[in-house]
């Protein structure tokens, strides 16, 4: 059984068919790249997996279970994290807080205990922060830890967004053009990180690129 199965999926916006009977399977532990020109419907596929759109036809299965039964906010809890093509970070929060939002699916405390900040909440907070600091170490974000997103350069934001997705501890990571707009060096960094994400963290990666170079370096399938 594949980790993610996209099975004969079709999506139409009005009269335009954005995705036409697409099928592919992503195996556990691989880096799977979707490559194609702009407007080919790659990001739309991501949005389908994220459940932002409903396909008119076909099925999307994650670990054998149909995702179509889930709502958009339940997809993350299944273990699927993603980044966005046009960076969607929480602009007025710090890098640390952004990454901590990535831990939301691991939230086990409730409203009342959080307002009183009971010991259980403190304990959970420590655990969240430990997990997030690991991601910060992994992606070399220490220098930007307490900075507000609004003041950060593009390249760093791109990395923060990847970090936020990693903080979720996903099984499957969806990267929407992780190297677009980055310099050659930054692109290389991203390629190495993707490699490490696969080998060290054991996370399966599905990525979208419109040009072949970065994906050729890291894709295995």
């Amino acid at each position: 059984m594949s980790l993610l199965e996209v099975d004969n999926v079709t999506l139409k916006f009005g009269g335009v068919t954005a995705v036409d009977h697409v099928s592919f399977e992503v195996e556990e532990g691989e880096v799977f790249a979707l490559v194609g020109p702009n407007g080919a419907g790659k990001s739309t596929l991501f949005n389908l997996v994220s459940r932002f759109y409903d396909p008119v036809e076909g099925d999307i299965r994650f670990r054998g279970e149909s995702l179509l039964k889930r709502k958009a906010h339940e997809v993350a809890a299944c273990g699927i994290a993603r980044t966005f093509q046009n960076i969607e970070l929480f602009e007025h929060a710090s890098v640390l807080q952004n990454l901590l939002v990535g831990r939301h699916t691991h939230r086990a405390t409730n409203l009342v205990s959080e307002l009183l900040f009971l010991p259980s909440v403190r304990k959970a907070e420590r655990a969240h922060r430990e997990a997030v600091e690991k991601v910060i170490d992994f992606l070399d974000l220490q220098a930007f830890r307490d900075k507000t997103i609004a003041g950060l350069p593009y390249g760093v934001r791109k990395v923060v967004e990847m970090g936020r997705a990693l903080a979720l501890e996903p099984k499957l990571l969806l990267l929407d053009e992780p190297a677009s707009g980055l310099s050659t060096e930054e692109t290389q960094d991203v390629a190495f990180w993707i490699e490490d994400i696969k080998t060290q963290m054991g996370v399966t990666v599905l990525m979208v690129e419109h040009d072949m170079h970065p994906s050729r370096r890291s894709a295995t399938g």
Partner: peptide
């Protein structure tokens, strides 16, 4: 306490970007 707990961060997420808050598993 709200500011330093997950709920407060979920609020900030909803404030700044609903779309990615949803992708992070926040029920808007």
């Amino acid at each position: 306490n709200l500011l330093r707990s997950p709920l407060g961060r979920a609020f900030a997420a909803v404030r700044d970007s609903e779309i990615s808050a949803r992708a992070m598993g926040v029920d808007i």
